[in-house]
Write a protein that binds this DNA or RNA. Structure first.
Lengths: 171, 171
DNA sequence: TAGTACATTCAGAAGTAATTGAAAGTACGG
DNA sequence: CCGTACTTTCAATTACTTCTGAATGTACTA
């Protein structure tokens, strides 16, 4: 592989890792995701260890996390005891997976927490302003939940770019 | 204030802090935001220090960060040397501010990084698959950027709930 | 101008999260 | 079964982030 291309790929892996950091995602996990995205062949744990200079244990744990997020698949070839990892090919499908997970991990718990607070606040007059604010927040968060749910449940990820591009054309 | 209400408010502050953590936001900053959201009077740094049991320095820094995010305003009353802090009242306006900041801090840098990688990758045939993948990602990220831009630029935050509710009704 | 009342900064302490690597686990082939 | 080739786990370590509080800065008042 040409030196330019190699350096560009490394740059991309690092940038994606950086972005992961900003989004509260483990940086190494994001780098592994990037590496798999731009690899046109499945990679083994050893490949990834070598490419990113991380330990075996770390590689194992972060790959498992990526699989849990539904962003990476493990496959094993017959007559080969090694496991191979591949990234979801289609970026729109990837987008749906991320939406689904973020909804589940980040939005739903907030809805639950606000509900509980509302219950605990009681019906007193002095709690009225508090209840009102919680209800406003709930409405906002529920709408976010709804939107992420819609995106996350796309069966055919292919429709997503069309819908969004349409949205863009309308605006 | 009734004990129930007080406990419910504390619970809300802690939950919002928790959520901040999941979103890669400083937990204390998120707790301060929550506290200000549910306070019907402006608070001083001392009020916040006392309510959340954090140091003066920490309070000062996190409040500044909240002001930088456009989520909190400082106001000073005449004949009072103290500064008072208030949270943006309207949750939809708050939502716009968050969208604007996240676009600027998290999406735009990614677009820049991908662009740079594309430039560096060059036009070689062997880079074709890499360029293709980068372009797909770019399309996705640009759409996200667009959507956040739309939300963030709402002049009248009041239209946002209407648009979103409409979207919900349609689906 | 000095004193007071507040806010800000920042070096170091405390706390949290990521990482390593060696030991334990698993499963296949013979 | 046993050895081999791999993967996973986890206690200890390292790296990073947040927090503290004393020193410093700012600006109002008398």
């Amino acid at each position: 592989m040409g030196a330019e291309l190699k350096s560009a790929k490394e740059k991309f892996v690092e940038s994606w890792g950086q972005m992961g950091g900003a989004w509260g995602i483990n940086k190494t996990m994001a780098r592994m995701h990037a590496l798999l995205m731009i690899s046109d062949v499945p990679l083994t744990a050893d490949d990834i260890m070598a490419a990113l200079a991380v330990s075996r244990g770390n590689t194992s744990m972060n790959l498992r996390a990526l699989v849990d997020w539904g962003l990476v698949r493990r496959t094993s070839l017959p007559r080969d005891r090694k496991e191979y990892f591949t990234c979801e090919k289609d970026v729109w499908t990837m987008c749906c997976r991320i939406a689904r997970e973020r909804k589940k991990r980040e939005i739903e718990p907030v809805i639950g927490a606000i509900d509980e607070c509302l219950k605990e606040a009681g019906g007193d007059k002095e709690a009225a302003a508090f209840r009102k604010k919680l209800n406003e927040l709930l409405e906002l968060v529920r709408l976010l939940d709804f939107v992420l749910g819609k995106v996350g449940n796309q069966e055919k990820a292919a429709v997503l770019p069309k819908v969004l591009t349409l949205l863009k054309a309308m605006a």
